[in-house]
Simulated scan of single mutants.
Amino acid sequence: MLVSRIARISPKKALASAAVAAATTGMVLTAAPAHAATTGSSSAQAVAQKMIPDKAQYAAFSNIVSHESGWNVTATNSSSGAYGLVQALPGSKMASSGADWKTNPATQIKWGLDYMNSRYGSPTAAWSFWQANGWY
Protein backbone atom coordinates (compact mmCIF):
# COMPACT_ATOMS: atom_id res chain seq x y z
CA MET A 1 0.00 0.00 0.00
CA LEU A 2 1.40 3.36 -1.05
CA VAL A 3 0.74 6.20 1.35
CA SER A 4 1.64 9.73 0.43
CA ARG A 5 2.09 12.47 2.92
CA ILE A 6 1.30 16.09 2.19
CA ALA A 7 3.31 18.47 4.29
CA ARG A 8 1.79 21.70 5.45
CA ILE A 9 3.93 24.68 4.53
CA SER A 10 3.39 28.13 5.93
CA PRO A 11 2.71 30.92 3.42
CA LYS A 12 5.91 32.63 4.56
CA LYS A 13 7.97 29.49 3.90
CA ALA A 14 6.26 28.93 0.54
CA LEU A 15 7.04 32.50 -0.52
CA ALA A 16 10.64 32.16 0.60
CA SER A 17 10.97 28.92 -1.39
CA ALA A 18 9.45 30.56 -4.46
CA ALA A 19 11.83 33.51 -4.11
CA VAL A 20 14.85 31.18 -3.93
CA ALA A 21 13.62 29.23 -6.97
CA ALA A 22 13.02 32.46 -8.89
CA ALA A 23 16.42 33.86 -7.98
CA THR A 24 18.08 30.62 -9.07
CA THR A 25 16.55 30.98 -12.53
CA GLY A 26 17.23 34.71 -12.74
CA MET A 27 13.65 35.85 -12.10
CA VAL A 28 12.67 38.56 -9.67
CA LEU A 29 9.56 38.46 -7.50
CA THR A 30 7.93 41.77 -6.72
CA ALA A 31 4.96 42.68 -4.60
CA ALA A 32 1.80 43.91 -6.29
CA PRO A 33 0.77 47.49 -5.55
CA ALA A 34 -1.38 47.79 -2.44
CA HIS A 35 -4.32 49.18 -4.42
CA ALA A 36 -4.31 46.40 -7.01
CA ALA A 37 -6.93 44.40 -5.14
CA THR A 38 -9.33 47.33 -5.09
CA THR A 39 -9.27 48.24 -8.74
CA GLY A 40 -10.70 45.09 -10.31
CA SER A 41 -14.19 45.14 -11.75
CA SER A 42 -15.66 42.68 -9.24
CA SER A 43 -14.17 44.70 -6.40
CA ALA A 44 -15.57 47.95 -7.82
CA GLN A 45 -18.97 46.27 -8.12
CA ALA A 46 -18.79 45.16 -4.48
CA VAL A 47 -17.97 48.73 -3.43
CA ALA A 48 -20.94 50.03 -5.44
CA GLN A 49 -23.29 47.46 -3.90
CA LYS A 50 -22.31 48.68 -0.43
CA MET A 51 -22.76 52.30 -1.44
CA ILE A 52 -26.08 51.71 -3.24
CA PRO A 53 -28.16 49.36 -1.06
CA ASP A 54 -31.38 49.79 -3.08
CA LYS A 55 -31.42 46.94 -5.63
CA ALA A 56 -33.17 48.87 -8.41
CA GLN A 57 -30.85 51.87 -8.06
CA TYR A 58 -27.79 49.60 -7.98
CA ALA A 59 -28.99 47.70 -11.07
CA ALA A 60 -29.47 50.95 -12.98
CA PHE A 61 -26.08 52.28 -11.87
CA SER A 62 -24.47 48.97 -12.78
CA ASN A 63 -26.06 48.99 -16.24
CA ILE A 64 -24.69 52.44 -16.96
CA VAL A 65 -21.20 51.62 -15.68
CA SER A 66 -21.16 48.33 -17.59
CA HIS A 67 -21.92 50.15 -20.82
CA GLU A 68 -19.70 53.15 -20.17
CA SER A 69 -16.51 51.53 -18.84
CA GLY A 70 -17.04 47.81 -18.32
CA TRP A 71 -16.30 48.50 -14.64
CA ASN A 72 -12.74 49.54 -15.53
CA VAL A 73 -11.67 52.24 -13.06
CA THR A 74 -9.06 53.61 -15.47
CA ALA A 75 -11.13 53.37 -18.67
CA THR A 76 -10.40 56.27 -20.99
CA ASN A 77 -12.38 57.17 -24.09
CA SER A 78 -9.76 57.76 -26.78
CA SER A 79 -11.87 60.27 -28.70
CA SER A 80 -13.44 62.35 -25.92
CA GLY A 81 -11.07 61.78 -23.01
CA ALA A 82 -13.93 60.72 -20.70
CA TYR A 83 -12.47 58.80 -17.77
CA GLY A 84 -13.27 56.21 -15.15
CA LEU A 85 -16.21 54.01 -14.21
CA VAL A 86 -18.81 56.64 -15.06
CA GLN A 87 -16.84 58.26 -17.91
CA ALA A 88 -16.67 61.75 -16.42
CA LEU A 89 -15.70 64.45 -18.91
CA PRO A 90 -13.25 65.73 -18.02
CA GLY A 91 -12.23 63.05 -15.57
CA SER A 92 -10.76 65.65 -13.24
CA LYS A 93 -14.34 66.64 -12.29
CA MET A 94 -14.24 63.64 -9.97
CA ALA A 95 -11.58 65.38 -7.85
CA SER A 96 -14.49 67.08 -6.09
CA SER A 97 -15.20 63.70 -4.47
CA GLY A 98 -11.58 62.89 -3.58
CA ALA A 99 -7.96 63.41 -4.55
CA ASP A 100 -7.69 59.70 -5.39
CA TRP A 101 -10.28 59.96 -8.19
CA LYS A 102 -7.98 58.42 -10.81
CA THR A 103 -7.78 55.01 -9.14
CA ASN A 104 -10.29 54.71 -6.31
CA PRO A 105 -13.59 53.10 -7.33
CA ALA A 106 -15.36 54.44 -4.22
CA THR A 107 -14.46 58.02 -5.14
CA GLN A 108 -15.63 57.52 -8.73
CA ILE A 109 -18.86 55.84 -7.59
CA LYS A 110 -19.59 58.64 -5.13
CA TRP A 111 -19.07 61.24 -7.85
CA GLY A 112 -21.16 59.25 -10.34
CA LEU A 113 -24.03 58.87 -7.88
CA ASP A 114 -23.95 62.58 -7.06
CA TYR A 115 -23.99 63.38 -10.79
CA MET A 116 -26.88 61.01 -11.55
CA ASN A 117 -28.89 62.26 -8.59
CA SER A 118 -28.36 65.94 -9.37
CA ARG A 119 -28.87 65.72 -13.15
CA TYR A 120 -31.54 62.99 -13.42
CA GLY A 121 -32.90 62.52 -9.92
CA SER A 122 -31.64 58.95 -9.48
CA PRO A 123 -29.62 56.21 -11.16
CA THR A 124 -32.85 54.63 -12.45
CA ALA A 125 -33.83 57.89 -14.14
CA ALA A 126 -30.29 58.20 -15.55
CA TRP A 127 -30.56 54.64 -16.91
CA SER A 128 -33.91 55.45 -18.55
CA PHE A 129 -32.29 58.44 -20.22
CA TRP A 130 -29.30 56.29 -21.27
CA GLN A 131 -31.62 53.71 -22.83
CA ALA A 132 -33.43 56.37 -24.84
CA ASN A 133 -30.31 58.23 -25.95
CA GLY A 134 -27.31 55.87 -25.72
CA TRP A 135 -25.56 58.26 -23.34
CA TYR A 136 -26.29 60.08 -20.11
Rank of each mutant, 00 (worst) to 15 (best):
N133I: 02
S118G: 01
N104A: 02
A21T: 14
K50R: 15
G40P: 09
K102F: 01
L29R: 03
G98W: 07
G91L: 07
G112W: 12
S42L: 13
S118L: 01
G40D: 09
K55G: 11
K12Q: 14
S97D: 00
V86I: 12
M51L: 14
Q57R: 04
Q57S: 13
R8L: 13
G121S: 11
W127D: 13
L29H: 06
A126Q: 05
A126G: 10
N63L: 02
S80Y: 11
K12M: 05
A88G: 09
Q49K: 15
A21V: 14
S96G: 12
Q87I: 09
W135S: 14
R119V: 15
M116P: 03
V20R: 15
L113K: 05
G98N: 12
K50L: 12
G26P: 08
W127T: 03
G40Y: 06
T103K: 07
V3E: 01
G112L: 11
V3Q: 10
A126M: 11
R8D: 12
S96K: 13
Q45M: 15
S4R: 09
S42R: 09
S69L: 05
L113C: 04
A60D: 05
Q108E: 11
Y58K: 10
Y115L: 10
A37Y: 07
P53G: 04
L89Y: 06
V20T: 14
A18P: 05
S122W: 07
G81E: 12
G81I: 06
S4V: 09
F129P: 01
A21F: 10
H67K: 14
A56E: 15
G70F: 13
A60R: 05
Y120M: 06
A31G: 02
L2G: 07
W111L: 07
L89V: 04
A44F: 02
N77E: 03
A18S: 14
N133R: 02
A48M: 09
S69A: 03
N77A: 12
K110W: 01
T103Q: 06
S42T: 14
N117I: 10
G26W: 00
M51C: 05
N63G: 15
A21Y: 04
P11S: 13
Q87V: 06
A125G: 00
A36E: 03
T25G: 08
Y115E: 04
N63Y: 11
P11T: 08
T76P: 00
P105V: 04
T103N: 11
V86W: 09
A19T: 11
P11D: 14
G40K: 11
N63I: 01
P105Y: 10
A126Y: 08
K55A: 15
D54T: 11
F129S: 15
R5W: 07
N104C: 05
P53Y: 06
M27W: 08
S118F: 02
A31I: 02
Y83A: 02
S41F: 00
F61V: 08
V28P: 00
A31C: 01
S41R: 00
G70Y: 08
A106I: 13
W127V: 03
R5D: 03
A22L: 07
K110F: 07
S69M: 03
A60C: 04
G121E: 08
A82F: 03
Q45A: 13
D54I: 05
S10P: 12
A88Y: 06
G91R: 09
T25F: 06
A46E: 04
K102M: 07
A19R: 08
A37V: 11
M1F: 13
N117G: 00
N63K: 11
S122R: 03
